[in-house]
Design a protein around this nucleic acid. Structure first.
Lengths: 346, 346
DNA sequence: TATTTTTGAATAAACGATAATCTAAATATT
DNA sequence: AATATTTAGATTATCGTTTATTCAAAAATA
């Protein structure tokens, strides 16, 4: 009833009349085994299709080749799908296996995952964007237990290794672009209502900061509350357009491309045009943004860079735990990708 | 340098002056341990934040609570992202952990994943859509080694457990709809060039079969070759529209929603209208299809059902290996989702 | 009181791989 | 030739759990 097909080191050892030590060493080219012995062992291993038992290996070496990935947000969001894909490639390239857990925006689930990862199943954890306040305790638990960890897009101010997009820089790029194009009334679409502490806070803060740096007025009603998704962007924009259009911003910095794409749809369905009537700028640069018409101006250019940085960081920490006390903090600067969704105003 | 925080059964046992046997049994409510002993053990375990060592457990029990998931296609495709998400939920609901590997349409990678899964790391594997011919040998290896496995959307005719969408039924629904709406020239967009054996073959076959059942003519040039993606749909349709539009089909059954959406974009950019000039019908029912204008008529309604069926199947096989000889074969019937992208012709 | 049954826990043996230690033969050194 | 050093392996112990078996004391029976 075993899964491994019953071929163990012992199987090989017996057939060759040697000990398991010899076989083990031969297979891994450790010194102290004769040349022809090594060949005999390897040949037999191939012949019998030997696969080392993963559990035994990690028990003995008290480490594992798996890295846990906890994505708290919806993986259906193309940005995260892309991230997962890149992370998997990058981990595989380093001979690591990925264990994916999805938080589904449920902090209970998030907590369970974090706990499970502490059973020695993984060598380290990449997680984000975490519910900061509620799961802070668990993060601490994990860290105190010596579980290497790096978070992304969250908890910048906490003492945890982290990699993040430089949200402020991204927002600045977008706002600068809008201002250069002559826009005077700039809105933000959408921020989550209520909980300003959650993920995305810093992107919105970056937006406000950028306006502030330009002495631009910030109207309360220009920060639009809504669900962060294509549907959210669609519905919110639909609502905005049904009201008086007098004081509407001439341009919106959208929380992400999905929101922008939803908004664009709503604008077009209302018989208006992007960018003629309303300019839009997104964030993420998902594939769709360059397929839609007009093509969406956005902030991005990160993709693989982000995944690579995350993987490098976690592997650094895993392999070199001594320096765990020095916290790693990396910010990746995004780029402005100018396309056709922003109009020049005079 | 351990990850588990050094709290093992032995730690608990020592503090309580009992043996690890007692602690182990107490924690898992096995018979033979006194009531107050059980309480003492559990309290201490909680206090010290004991986490059972995963590797030790699975080594001893020679099974694991992980299920391997091999997605060979691009997870950036919303349908697969959705599937992964649903599978993760469903597996978590059964207390299982998901190990995700991505094949990235690279059969070498696919093979490596399949091999890695045989190290006892997982209790079973869900995989699809596999490169049939090239990796057939590996599938066999795995099966022969007793690794429970279920594949999806591929290898219908091979002796492997599998769950699939009833492609033929889906195609039939779509074609029937088109015919009922009066269409006489129906095209297929897009199939992969060359390799008819790969995934998607049966969808296209279903299409041809459905036409056949209706005594509809099948013109070779109506089966359009192209990349199966939004971009692919876009480019192929752009190409079609640049040629003589005389004999162009009045309606296209698209391989999936992404292709349809890309095609729609191309049609609209050419100044034409869906469905007035060309009707489209998709397959998958991804979120975007109901947000786009016109909303896309498509075949779907599967989503969670599919994931549930896959998980049930693999767990059945894992827990009840005795019946491994009886091959499980399930087909899930999709539904037609009528929206606005198909025009009535008289 | 002597004997059997029950209860609660200890002992010991795995699971498969690996690292540290040790042995015997072969080779090298002086 | 006598000793020192390599070489190619075998022994043994261990990682943290689980489980079959054994054992002692307490409770129940005769």
């Amino acid at each position: 009833m075993k899964k491994t097909g019953d071929v163990t080191l012992a199987t090989l050892a017996e057939k060759l009349n040697v000990t398991t030590t010899t076989v083990s060493k031969a297979l891994r080219d450790k010194p102290g085994i004769g040349l022809e012995m090594v060949k005999k062992v390897k040949d037999l291993a191939r012949e019998l299709n030997y696969q080392p038992n993963f559990a035994a290996q990690s028990l003995k070496k008290s480490t594992s080749d798996s890295i846990g990935l906890l994505i708290t947000s919806d993986i259906t969001n193309p940005w995260y799908a892309q991230l997962v894909s890149s992370l998997e490639s990058e981990l595989a390239r380093h001979g690591k296996t990925m264990i994916l857990s999805l938080g589904k925006d449920d902090y209970e689930k998030e907590r369970n995952c974090l706990e499970a990862f502490r059973g020695g199943r993984v060598a380290g954890v990449i997680a984000g964007p975490i519910f900061r306040q509620r799961n802070l305790e668990n993060i601490w638990q994990s860290l105190n237990n010596g579980l290497p960890m790096v978070v992304f897009n969250c908890m910048e101010e906490m003492p945890v290794n982290y990699v993040a997009i430089d949200q402020a820089e991204g927002a600045r790029l977008a706002v600068n672009h809008l201002i250069e194009k002559g826009h005077k009334r700039i809105g933000y679409l959408c921020c989550l209502k209520g909980d300003l502490q959650e993920a995305g806070k810093s992107r919105r803060e970056g937006f406000e900061q950028a306006l502030f740096e330009h002495d631009m007025p910030l109207f309360g009603r220009n920060i639009i509350t809504g669900k962060i998704s294509k549907k959210g962007g669609y519905e919110v924009m639909k609502g905005l357009l049904s009201q008086s259009r007098e004081k509407l911003p001439t341009a919106f910095f959208c929380h992400n491309d999905n929101v922008a794409l939803g908004a664009m749809l709503a604008i077009q369905q209302a018989g208006l045009s992007v960018p003629e009537d309303i300019s839009l700028i997104g964030f993420d640069d998902i594939e769709e943004s360059s397929l839609v018409s007009p093509m969406l101006t956005t902030v991005g250019g990160i993709k693989d860079k982000f995944a690579k940085e995350l993987v490098n960081t976690i592997l650094d920490v895993v392999e070199n735990k001594s320096e765990t006390n020095n916290r790693i903090k990396k910010e990746i600067a995004p780029q402005l990708i100018v396309r056709d969704s922003v109009k020049q105003i005079n």
